[in-house]
């Protein structure tokens, strides 16, 4: 596990905020550094658990999925799909131009 002595530095906070696409004000970075740092410090109590040989658990409940039939049951609802769109043009959603 990551060493608890390494503080969460501002560059990491900014990097994860960029990954999460959330803009942070400069003053937020310092505050989040403290808050996230304290949460991370606290969850590092898991260091003391021995998990050797344990398979990770991702789901509770049924062991496997049921397969759906290959039938078209959905779609043909352009208006409903676009009704909540904050911006649209005809049958399209629109976003600021993406330059590739």
């Amino acid at each position: 596990m990551a060493s608890s002595s390494s503080p969460l530095d501002p560059a990491v906070v900014r990097r994860i905020a960029r990954l999460a696409r959330i803009r942070l004000a400069d003053e937020d970075v310092a505050q989040l550094q403290t808050e996230l740092g304290s949460i991370i410090g606290w969850i590092e109590q898991l260091d003391e658990v021995d998990v050797s040989g344990v398979d990770p658990l991702a789901n509770i409940g049924a062991a496997s999925m049921t397969l759906r039939d290959d039938v078209v049951t959905d779609g043909d609802q352009v208006d409903a799909v676009l009704a909540n769109a904050p911006a649209r043009s005809g049958p399209f959603f629109t976003v600021p131009k993406v330059v590739e």
Binding site: V71, D76, V78, L82, P91, F93
Partner: peptide, 26 residues
Amino acid sequence: SNAKLFSGASATYGGEPNAQVSFIDA
């Protein structure tokens, strides 16, 4: 396939824009 991997919308090519879209796909 007739339908999409995780929704019942049609997987065929060339429909009207956003006409082959379930709320799952969106």
